[in-house]
Design a protein around this nucleic acid. Sequence first.
DNA 1: AATATATTTCGATAGTTATCGAATCGTTAT
DNA 2: ATAACGATTCGATAACTATCGAAATATATT
Lengths: 100, 100
Amino acid sequence: MDTKKAAKIFKALSNPNRLELYFKIAEMHESSFPTDTDSECFVTDIIRSLNIGAPTISHHIKELVNADLISTEKKGKFLICKVNEELIEEVSKLLSLQQQ
Amino acid sequence: MDTKKAAKIFKALSNPNRLELYFKIAEMHESSFPTDTDSECFVTDIIRSLNIGAPTISHHIKELVNADLISTEKKGKFLICKVNEELIEEVSKLLSLQQQ
DNA sequence: AATATATTTCGATAGTTATCGAATCGTTAT
DNA sequence: ATAACGATTCGATAACTATCGAAATATATT
């Protein structure tokens, strides 16, 4: 991964609300068993738990998608988000390899 | 580490030039043997290799210090930078633990 | 059909930031 | 002492961004 892309990813994670949003998506995904389709991450639930309005959430989600950190899928009137695990693992390794 | 601090760290890494600056500092540090004091990271060398002016470098360094990502030490008229390895390792783990 | 709900789009605003040139400060070398 | 060099500070500017309220869109429910 080149520096520019890495910077873009960090930028997407650089806003406290957006980072919390990302973490919540990751947490939801974590608690999902293979057969448990009910633990998908709906944006509605997130909006209630964060202290910002729906338009801002929508904006943040777009930023996360744009950085390739998450992908989304429409299910009826709901939006489902899930994290791109490979990318974040790559970033994690980039950071830990940088030293030593 | 709380979300706010993590976001601050990501913000410090969110500018391409500043990220490259950070990587260069980390690389220099990497190549230093315990007894090899000559491989310390002087800012002068960095300025030449990046395409931005000295005032901007100075600004970026302040940001990295402010996020606790690096520490600096004055040696005569030079400035030496070194990375805070523990912090970046912590961040790396935060990212990889977030999923699963 | 009408209403409610989830999300997005739009337009605006206040705040932040990356970068620059010029000037300044400290230290070293002549 | 004076010049050179490394770094910082200052002031300015252009660009970006987080957030909002209002309106629009799409789907679901009654």
